Amino acid sequence: MSSAARAPHAGRLDALVVGCRTEEGRALLDAHGELVLGCTDTLAAALAAVPAGVRRVELDVTGVSFMDTAGLECLDVLSEYGRRHRVPVAARGWRGQPLRILELVGLTAEDPLCAPPAGPPVPVASPVARERAEQLHGLRVEIEQLRHAIVSRPVIDQARGILMAAHACSAEQAWDILRETSQRSNTKLREVAVAVTASTAPDGPVLPVNLRAALRAAVARHVHGG
């Protein structure tokens, strides 16, 4: 059986799918997709379908391509299942970007369901703790920027296609035109793309004067060599 959840960002979705099979008294769960908001429900549904009497539950995340901080809650769900059913649980196969998330919060690929290695607690104000907090904040910003890029990409690609058709230019030239128009007019790239796309619709709005001037200059430079 398998359970699936939609990824929370727009654009092409890489849904989380969790398959389950039993082998020699073990329940083996294979996760594929993204560990993001909503993934805990998918994992909980897969765990609920685990047959009674298994002696161990293993979650293989080799097929997970992306994880944000919300995905860490999956470890809590898996750990809670183990405590409630009194069976050992483990998550294995961490690599790439998901492994980076684990390392930033102090977990290890060898035993990601446990707290960081035993030892004196690290003071919150210590340099190590501050550095880890800064890294985690930077990663959250990076994730948010990635989500924004995914949302913006369809309209940007559409605007590039319009420019390619209108000015007989390449995809790279169309990208350079959009970027330079954004810089010249001090307008966000996505807003430029939206305006260009909307202006080509029947009875669509005319480009604002500042965008029209910036676009004309960018076309002249990148297409006509002016």
Rank of each mutant, 00 (worst) to 15 (best):
L107M: 01
I156C: 05
V105W: 12
L113I: 01
V151R: 09
P116Q: 08
P116I: 08
P127H: 07
H137T: 15
H148C: 05
I150F: 11
S152W: 03
R132Y: 07
T108W: 04
E110I: 01
P112L: 05
R147L: 08
L136P: 05
P154V: 00
R132W: 10
V151A: 13
R153H: 06
C114S: 14
S126G: 11
V124F: 13
V128I: 13
V155Q: 05
A159D: 01
A129Q: 15
R140P: 06
V122K: 14
V141T: 11
G119A: 05
E110W: 00
H137P: 07
P121W: 00
R130E: 13
S126L: 09
P154M: 02
V122Y: 11
P123A: 08
L107D: 01
A133Y: 09
V155W: 05
P116A: 11
E110A: 09
R130Y: 08
L146T: 08
L102M: 06
R100E: 12
A115Q: 10
P117I: 00
S126F: 11
A133K: 12
V141I: 12
A149M: 02
Q158S: 05
R100K: 10
L146P: 03
P117S: 00
Q158V: 03
E131M: 15
G161Y: 00
I143Q: 11
P112F: 04
R130V: 09
P127T: 08
I101Q: 03
L104T: 09
I156W: 02
A133R: 15
E144M: 06
L136N: 05
L146C: 03
A133E: 14
A133H: 11
E142G: 10
E103I: 00
G119K: 00
T108Q: 10
I156L: 04
I150M: 12
P127Q: 07
G161K: 05
A133I: 06
P127G: 09
E134T: 11
A129G: 13
V128E: 15
H148W: 05
H148S: 07
V141G: 04
I101A: 02
A129C: 14
I150K: 14
C114E: 12
A115H: 09
Q135R: 14
I162R: 04
P120K: 15
A109D: 07
